[in-house]
Design a protein around this nucleic acid. Structure first.
Lengths: 204, 204
DNA sequence: GTCTATAAGGCGATAGAC
DNA sequence: GTCTATCGCCTTATAGAC
């Protein structure tokens, strides 16, 4: 059905395309969408700016694809961590696994994932709208985990799980602003934040 | 020593200056620093772009002033909420008061404050460096609250208060991305988030 | 203090050679 | 597929009239 089933007719073109996406994601993530000219992306990919248009229709189309790859990468990372749990794992283990998956994706493997977090607010509205379905699908994973936690009784009745989800996202996503490889490891951050949310600050 | 001690010779100029800061803060906050041309700022202030240079040396200088006003506004709001507490208020009351102050500043009164949060990462490095001392002074307030909490025993020994502070900031600041006036009120958000961090998710 | 006019350069995007 | 060349527009910033 797709090109992988036959030989490899246009493989080289796909490779260049991938390289452009990679360098663009790195530049968008660190410098921002509006502050990154196409000329720099092209230079980083050893090309001239005009050549990019053979692979992408516009700067916006390039950005949209990076955003979508990023969210899907985060979703896969979260699903993978949950799948690695022993059978019958409870809510608190699921929450910590999901947090590890999210944090790993945005801090470690990350240019596509972190572009998502750091550039979403500064991207043209059209791009934001078009990437919404993919974002919604990712948030659905978290809604399910938290709703299960409430039904299990692991989350107190008075907790607003909508607010909880947004606060969890904020706490984790903000790490893209302060994380440094020489500081806390990703596992330490995930464990610390999970404990913070699960147990609160008090002694017991 | 300054102009306020004498009559009011250049008051009108100061007023225009303030107007430019106001409209620029609103535009930077909603659309972003790099995506907001000086022409739009000028138009919103009923002027032409060139006239802005009578009041500010450059776009960067304008942004720097907005960022600093923003942080100082957040700091004042936090200090005010804490000052309103009854004498001898404990850590949990102080934390909730500080959170109310921070959230009110960034969500309610906020173009200067929210410009800070939403644009810090996309601003030229020079501007970021110059605004660092003001930011550090604000963070000092939080470090003090949390260290007191630890000494009081209100924060468990195992909690990393550096990570706690960053996670609190993340949870609160992220609200600039999802807050809508028709949803939860600022007081509800602050109370909900304070409870989340103080008590955790469990039933007790 | 604000205007008009313009400098000097950057931007995304396109056309056509190779 | 990538290049060169360029279009048309936008940008920050400046100079000088009013």
């Amino acid at each position: 059905m797709n090109q992988e089933s036959s030989a490899k007719p246009l493989k080289k073109s796909q490779l260049t395309r991938k390289m452009i996406l990679d360098v663009a994601a790195a530049l968008f993530s660190s410098r921002g969408y509006n502050a990154t000219p196409l000329r720099e992306i092209a230079a980083a990919a050893n090309m001239k700016a005009g050549s990019l248009y053979y692979h992408f229709d516009s700067k916006e189309a390039l950005m949209l694809e990076i955003l979508n790859i990023g969210i899907e990468g985060i979703a896969e990372s979260v699903k993978h961590q949950i799948a690695c749990l022993p059978e019958g794992a409870g809510f608190s283990q699921q929450l910590e696994a999901a947090m590890v998956g999210h944090l790993k994706a945005i801090l470690e493997s990350g240019d596509y994932a972190s572009t998502n977090i750091r550039n979403y607010g500064q991207v043209p509205e059209r791009v934001r709208e078009e990437s919404m379905p993919v974002r919604d699908r990712y948030e659905e994973i978290w809604r399910n985990i938290l709703e299960n936690g409430k039904q299990e009784g692991a989350i107190a009745d008075h907790v607003n799980i909508g607010l909880l989800r947004l606060t969890l996202f904020g706490g984790m996503n903000w790490a893209t602003e302060w994380y440094r490889p020489e500081g806390l490891t990703i596992e330490e951050i995930a464990a610390g934040q999970a404990q913070l949310f699960l147990q609160g600050l008090s002694q017991n």
